[in-house]
Design a binder for these strands. Structure first.
Lengths: 242, 242
DNA sequence: TTTTTGCTGTCTGTGTACAATGTTCGACAC
DNA sequence: GTGTCGAACATTGTACACAGACAGCAAAAA
């Protein structure tokens, strides 16, 4: 259906793309996912225009797209900032993801082919390499990419498009709330999930996916028990940097 | 979260709204849902600008939003047209809706309060009045509104936002493929669903919702057996009117 | 008659100027 | 020292102008 959307997230942004606003969109998107842009950061149209060498018109369109995916928040007359989901919102996003991932997993089992599985296996290997090399940002992006490719395999464009928005927001949440230094999305679980999908065991695949999401969520500090923390951490979601 | 989005669809568009592009967006949106704009209709920026008395900038933003919700298709350098989902896409949309509506129904049961139920009962009554008076367009819109308000009751903004897109597209599909002269979304089923949600019987509520969707889909001609129909109907998804 | 090529008109893509709105900071009163 | 008001500044909202792309038509050649 919407062809441009498919490729935007799939590969590292720097490369050539269709139109200018695609490039800008992809760059900002990646920057957010790789946590080079912290939640709350102000995204001024003029600054971005200078950085990318384009007019505000292009920036505006890119921000509009990001806004629709809830990755940035557009405040009328007050500009755009990188979204910083609250704990409540984070939980709702995880709930929505469980709903969607369950359906996607079942559909993926139905539409699974050896070629598609192979592509995904390679993707997981790339992810593993990134984490091994300490490139956490790229790892997080590829990890999200894995879930998107699964959605592609499910062969349902509406669900894919929703999943794209959810994955972006999840990355944002991880950036904001991840506690331990561990990687957030274990590739071992990705591999095991692929094997199960390949075997055609729908129920087990769904179970694995649900546990996978449990593990991701478990690594986050979503309990709101930050009362004893330092002020800086407590109010990090309020302060707009840059 | 995004407050403006909530109210955009909720009430008849003609009234005052926040910003200008909200007004334009709502007008076009309603026109599509009420089938005053047929699938395939070209939406020229300049024409719309004259009609609404605003510049192309505003129109462009409205079309961009509609495009993101897949209600109109934006073709680079070739303008926007009202989307005309294929049979395949229609089935995928219904599949996605089953997934989402199931979750929404369960959450709605959990968060149900007498006040909210009452609001919805009134909405169904309005819907009934519209169909009784022969205002099919408004009826379809209110019927979609019912499902959106249910999503609101579910208290999960991400799911709500996705549901909004799905409901819009469903309306488009109904406009394109509905066969019989019967109203497409029986308010009786809406009422029964509300009663069951009120009673707290989650499983039965989900069953009702699934059957409700079955009934809607059953009224459509999604079998691809339109060979005997007239040419106009067969090729309606190809021809760009106006 | 059919196909191809070039022209022309219409529409969208982009940049920029101006208007409107929000924010910040200083002065002044309490 | 604190709070409030106001003006200058900065940023976004909107309109418009120009440039570029596509589509349709016409004319010429096969």
């Amino acid at each position: 259906m919407n062809d441009s959307l498919h490729s935007v997230i799939s590969r590292k942004s720097g490369e050539r793309k269709g139109t200018q606003d695609d490039i800008v969109y992809a760059h900002i998107f990646d920057a957010i996912l790789e946590q080079r842009l912290a939640p709350g950061t102000k995204l001024s149209e003029e600054s971005l225009g200078e950085i990318f060498g384009v007019s505000r018109t292009i920036i505006r369109r890119a921000l509009s797209r990001l806004g629709h995916e809830q990755v940035v928040v557009l405040r009328p007359n007050r500009g755009a900032v990188v979204a910083s989901p609250s704990i409540e919102e984070a939980k709702q996003i995880f709930l929505a993801r469980r709903v969607v991932e369950k359906a996607i997993t079942e559909l993926a089992v139905e539409h699974s082919t050896p070629e598609k599985i192979n592509e995904l296996v390679q993707l997981v290997e790339e992810e593993q390499v990134c984490f091994a090399q300490g490139d956490r940002g790229a790892g997080i992006r590829l990890s999200g990419e894995f879930h998107l490719r699964l959605a592609t395999m499910a062969n349902n464009p509406p669900l894919l498009s929703f999943q794209r928005s959810l994955v972006s927001q999840t990355s944002l949440i991880i950036a904001q709330y991840e506690s331990g230094g561990k990687h957030h999305c274990s590739y071992d679980e990705h591999t095991e999930l692929l094997r199960t999908i390949e075997s055609g065991n729908k129920k087990k695949a769904v179970d694995l996916m649900m546990h996978h999401l449990d593990h991701i969520e478990a690594k986050l500090n979503l309990d709101g028990e930050s009362a004893s923390g330092d002020l800086h951490a407590v109010f990090s979601h309020l302060v707009g940097k840059q």
